[in-house]
């Protein structure tokens, strides 16, 4: 069995698990910010916990969002850099896919995640079919899915967040995970407020004539 590292920093926490054949060491700290300071020391500590070094890691699994934009990037920057420099497989799960690992055996449920705004990130799984994830309000999703069981960090059914990276490791070990260059999944475009000021504009012909 491979040495696997799992990292989760998208959901307002810093979670790391490192597994070797027979052992798994998990470190978890809830935090809104500070992952840039804690993540690497935690990864190294988790490796020590199973008597390996970071160099011995043979596969990396990471959540790729949605969640905190910064958290998503912190986890992905570490996971992608490690996978690229060591030429080892990289596995990515959306935050929805990661939380689905807690719902095994259930065919209909919804995942609701904190967006740090007035809305939430949401994905419904109906009769085993994952619907398109979206950004919506809690009220509106309750209207559309009044009877759906909801799990997430802003849902009635909370989950054991500390166990998330352990679930991710088991997922990779099960062989179901697909390897690849993993992109972030922000679920939302960057906010850009264009300046309201009006400026002249100049065509390239006019510019050329000036220069």
């Amino acid at each position: 069995m491979k040495n696997i590292l799992a990292i989760e920093t998208a959901l307002e926490a810093c979670g790391v698990s490192v597994a070797t054949g027979d052992q798994c060491h998990t470190i978890f700290e809830p935090m809104k910010r500070g992952q840039t300071e804690r993540l690497i020391p935690m990864v190294m500590e988790a490796c020590e916990g199973v008597n390996i070094t970071l160099k011995d890691v043979e596969a990396v699994c990471v959540t790729r969002g949605p969640g905190s934009f910064t958290g998503v990037r912190v986890g992905l920057s570490v996971a992608r850099t490690l996978a690229n420099i060591r030429e080892i497989p990289l596995y990515g799960l959306t935050s929805f896919e990661a939380l689905s690992l807690f719902m095994e055996g259930k065919s209909s449920y919804g995942i609701v995640l904190e967006s740090k705004r007035t809305d939430v990130y949401f994905q419904a799984i109906v009769d085993g079919q994952a619907q398109e994830p979206c950004v919506t309000t809690y009220e509106s999703l309750l209207e559309t899915y009044p009877d759906l069981e909801l799990i997430g960090n802003v849902a009635p059914l909370q989950f054991d967040q500390k166990a998330l990276t352990v679930k991710m490791i088991e997922y990779v070990q099960s062989g179901q995970a697909e390897e690849g260059q993993i992109s972030p999944y922000y679920c939302r475009e960057a906010d850009i407020s264009a300046s309201k000021k009006k400026y002249r504009t100049m065509s390239s012909d006019v510019l050329d004539s000036l220069l």
Partner: peptide
């Protein structure tokens, strides 16, 4: 974070 990863 990329730099720290390589260093670690």
């Amino acid at each position: 974070m990329a730099g720290k990863t390589i260093a670690a």
